[in-house]
């Protein structure tokens, strides 16, 4: 039986994530936890979150989860969602500059808010937008190219190595909607709120062995 840990560091809609995993999980055991030992025992790890990166990083350090996440991201199927994707990077522009976990090289930038002269784009980027799969991956199995997913964010991820970009989305800029590297998959959108496409992605994650 697969065990799945959803890392709970007190930020965001953790319950939405665990409920969606339970819905698609069959007999998988879904556990919401901030206990390093329990998280390290899980077969699959989900790192969700919404909000500000600075708060996220200080909570992770307080709960001694920063090294735990690093360990999980090296060793087992790992899914970062929204802030849980941004936190994997080296550095964010948020709050005048905030260091991330440095697991994936790259930075987190604020949306420019539209091209010069064009109608300004609303920030946060909130709602359903198309996700263009940049390459095949086990987590895209059964999901249509350019299908819609639900986004809510004001910052986006710019990986240093473009080869890790697994999908792009357009919002004034073309940004990385998903990253994939080895056993790590990370998404800027909310699969737990993206109806059938999102549930399919979560089901794919639970079935994934972490291979590319």
């Amino acid at each position: 039986m697969t065990t799945v840990a959803v890392i709970d560091y007190g930020m965001g809609n953790i319950r939405s994530v665990s409920k969606a995993l339970e819905y698609v999980g069959g007999d998988a055991q879904i556990e919401v936890s901030y206990d390093p030992e329990r998280i390290l025992r899980a077969d699959h790890v989900v790192f969700p979150g919404v909000g500000a990166l600075r708060d996220c990083m200080s909570e992770l350090q307080r709960l001694e989860l920063d090294d735990v996440i690093g360990e999980c991201a090296r060793t087992r199927p790992f899914l970062g969602i929204c802030l849980g994707m941004q936190a994997l990077m080296d550095f964010s522009e948020e709050n005048g500059g905030t260091p991330g976990l440095g697991i994936v090289p790259g930075r987190v930038a604020r949306f420019p808010g539209g091209a010069p002269g064009a109608e300004p784009l609303k920030i946060p980027h909130m709602g359903w937008n198309r996700v263009h799969q940049a390459r095949p991956h086990a987590l895209w199995e059964g999901i249509a190219q350019d299908d819609y997913f639900y986004f809510v964010h004001s910052y986006y991820v710019a990986p240093r190595d473009a080869a890790v970009t697994a999908a792009t989305t357009d919002y004034g800029v073309s940004f990385a909607a998903a990253l994939a590297r080895g056993n790590i998959f990370a998404v800027q959108f909310h699969p737990e709120k993206s109806q059938q496409a999102g549930l399919k992605l979560l089901a794919n994650f639970l079935a994934w062995d972490g291979g590319a």
Partner: peptide, 8 residues
Amino acid sequence: MTGLVKRV
């Protein structure tokens, strides 16, 4: 350029 849709 954006693919963001209007919500109902």
